[in-house]
């Protein structure tokens, strides 16, 4: 298989010592196994996520993404931009679409970029890593790489919001996307059928500003996984992963529950199934240990 190359936008939370550095580690391992080369966009900046709108109006906010796309077009010419963070992908793709629709905005952003000698051509597809897996690599190739099937694991596929809406993965429904379940199956595990909270919002950034309202939603996501006898939850989104994993103790205190549900990334499942160690799969960075998955990794 020829090596595939992409211009990679990791985003702030994927940096060393940041909240989804475990996703970054496991994605690097996954890409090694799949012979995918990810070239970081040199000197990329924050995308403003979906909460930057308070201080950031349309033009300054979208210009953040314009700088990233321009840097990618200059240094990683001809390569699709690929993001692993749902918010990074969404913000960048939204910006690219807005600039296509609005010539005035495009002219203004280029006027701003010119201050640092940059130019946006806006000719680059903005994609999510999950699209790369499904569309460019395919379930069959992924299945062919499995050395340690995740047998006996029951997994709730939690897709969340921003990997799913408004763009989503081509051919999948917004209300009941099936790709995560298909991936879980490809890796030899048992996907929870009809996981009713698969596209439930976790509160996103409001987990910080409206903790009680958000934790009420997070509670339903975990409860539903327990109701389906899941061993763990898997998600593609760094905000979903963090929100659903780290507040379980607080929810337990408020609601007298006994939640201790591990939440992992799809890339961690793939790493373990591909035969890599618990460390290469970043399982040592779980706040709630994924015991059964670690057992398979240590076999």
């Amino acid at each position: 298989m020829a090596k595939k190359e992409y211009s990679f936008y990791p985003g702030c939370s994927s940096q060393q010592g940041a909240s989804s550095s475990n996703m970054q580690k496991s994605v690097e391992t996954m890409c090694e196994e799949l012979d995918v080369k990810i070239n970081q966009i040199p000197d990329w900046n924050c995308c403003a996520a979906s909460i930057g709108y308070g201080g950031g109006g349309e033009l300054p906010r979208l210009t953040l993404s314009a700088r990233n796309i321009a840097l990618s077009e200059q240094h990683n010419t001809g390569q699709d931009i690929v993001a692993t963070c749902a918010a990074c992908w969404l913000a960048t793709r939204e910006a690219a679409e807005r600039f296509h629709e609005d010539d005035g905005l495009m002219a203004e952003t280029n006027q701003a970029l010119a201050e640092a000698g940059l130019k946006l051509r806006n000719e680059t597809p903005i994609r999510h890593m999950v699209e790369v897996l499904i569309e460019d690599i395919g379930y069959e190739t992924i299945g062919g790489k499995v050395q340690r099937p995740l047998e006996g694991l029951k997994i709730a596929g939690y897709v969340g919001c921003q990997t799913n809406r408004p763009f989503g993965i081509a051919g999948e429904s917004f209300e009941n996307p099936m790709y995560l379940d298909k991936l879980v199956e490809t890796l030899g595990a048992d996907p929870v059928q009809n996981y009713d909270k698969k596209v439930q919002c976790c509160g996103g950034a409001l987990a910080f500003s409206e903790p009680e309202k958000s934790q009420d939603m997070i509670k339903t996501i975990i409860e539903s996984a327990y109701d389906s006898s899941a061993d763990l939850i898997v998600t593609p989104c760094p905000v979903c992963q963090m929100n659903v994993e780290i507040y379980q103790d607080q929810i337990n205190q408020r609601h007298n529950t006994k939640f201790k549900m591990p939440v992992v990334y799809y890339s961690q499942l793939m790493d373990v199934a591909f035969g890599r160690s618990a460390k290469d799969s970043a399982l040592d960075q779980q706040v709630i240990k994924a015991g059964k998955l670690e057992e398979i990794a240590n076999k």
Binding site: Q15, A49, G54, G55, L64, S209, E210
Partner: peptide, 17 residues
């Protein structure tokens, strides 16, 4: 949320990340 959104914007603009 307004306060958080504003802090987020200031934080990212300080160093670009």
């Amino acid at each position: 949320t307004q306060k958080f959104a504003q802090k987020f914007w200031q934080n990212l603009n300080k160093k670009g990340r």
